[in-house]
Design a protein around this nucleic acid. Structure first.
Lengths: 234, 234
DNA sequence: TCATAAAAACAAATCGATTTTTCTTCCACT
DNA sequence: AGTGGAAGAAAAATCGATTTGTTTTTATGA
């Protein structure tokens, strides 16, 4: 549970609704609002000191991003998690991100190549200290930026939006279930290979590597989730 | 421009917001609210005799479905159309629907087969009379139902939502630019082939046929759109 | 004791009015 | 004439209160 004033004040230049949306989004992605939890609009309204109208619009937007589920006349709840859902998100990312990457390789020029290598450099130079919450956030930001930079030049707004939403759901699972300790992979090597194939215009190889990268992360998450949700059937 | 009372009264059991959403959605898809048009919330509020809160939530939902675009502090406008957008929608449908179809073929049993053949039968028995607006609507409903039935059993809610949104955008282009007169294709034969391959569990063939089917429609629409938007560059 | 139904409590949906922001017009000044 | 900017108008965002619908509780009859 976070305090309210700082969170709302931080995001400037936006509309109030946008600020609340951002604040709630962070709480959902971080697990502060756990999967399946019912949202009391009344309570949130007081917590953030806003009117129902603003709050209502914020949760409507979050629902459309798949972070909340809405039952008419019965309120909102945080989107539940499940093995099925994780499998679908993984599967769709495996299809869509390589598609976007191929297009980006076709469209991108020297600027794009530069951006990719820059994002890779920053990511590989960013350390993760399991004990330091802030370093984890910085690493995640760099990781997200790297994946986005790879595909950003695909020039397909709808596809980018889909990939963005899927990544967001993915990050929630990662926050909830993936501690760094268990990681046995050389992530840096994987990222570097992907970036270098992409910049070298080897679309087939880059797409295959990206697909495998997503699949591996998905498998790791699945293992953790299975351990955390014992007895639940597919 | 439609009258208000009947439209809102027709959709029962829903929340008021839901009714407005449905009414506006129809007007956008039919072209009654043309691409790029600015929405005056004030005018719509009076037109439908509802409060701003309800209307606001309705347009927020439509925006999240990609039918409206929102600029903060500056209002909503109907999503514009373009060759680029049409190309992206076509491309994504070509990727996603076959993916869903393969999964449906893997998952579906005798019930699914039956549903597919039933939807095919209804579609092929539904005539289109260019002069009769109602017959066009009936045909379109049958057509949508057929495509949805094909992939419904993929058991991937996120994927189905994406396909649904893309189809919706597609149907808008069809309404705006595709008269039946120019159609030189044997649509019934295409649909029949797809359905029969699917039911016969020939996933590769069914997916390829569906992909080609979408591509052909996309090409036809592109030609019409190019004719209608002269001088506009890709 | 259980089932049923009325009623009280609670929460979501809607409303009308107010505040804030953006857009437009018009005037002063160079 | 052209630029800058202030005043007014229009539109979006927000608010607090009311209405409508859902859930829970309690009382009644079999």
């Amino acid at each position: 549970m976070t305090t309210k004033e700082p969170v709302l004040a931080r995001a400037r230049g936006q509309t109030l609704t946008g600020k609340i949306e951002t604040a709630l989004r962070l709480r959902i992605l971080s697990g502060d609002l756990p999967p399946g939890a019912k949202l009391s609009l009344d309570r949130l309204k007081n917590e953030y000191s806003v009117s129902l109208s603003a709050l209502r619009e914020a949760v409507t937007r979050l629902a459309s991003d798949g972070l909340l589920e809405v039952e008419e006349q019965r309120g909102y709840r945080v989107a539940p998690i499940s093995l099925d859902n994780l499998a679908e998100v993984t599967r769709l990312r495996m299809e869509l991100e390589p598609l976007a990457l191929r297009q980006a390789i076709a469209n991108g020029g020297i600027d794009w190549e530069t951006d990719v290598m820059a994002a890779l450099y920053r990511l590989n130079r960013t350390g993760r200290d399991p004990k330091d919450q802030e370093s984890l956030e910085v690493w995640e930001a760099a990781h997200n930026a790297f994946h986005l930079t790879l595909i950003d030049r695909c020039d397909m707004p709808l596809l980018l939006r889909m990939c963005g939403q899927l990544s967001e759901m993915y990050n929630r699972y990662r926050h909830l279930f993936l501690s760094i300790k268990g990681e046995q992979r050389d992530l840096a090597a994987e990222h570097t290979e992907i970036a270098e194939s992409a910049v070298a215009r080897d679309a087939d190889r880059a797409a295959a590597l990206l697909r495998a990268h997503i699949e591996k992360t998905g498998a790791a998450l699945k293992a953790r989730l299975e351990a955390a949700l014992p007895g639940q059937e597919r």
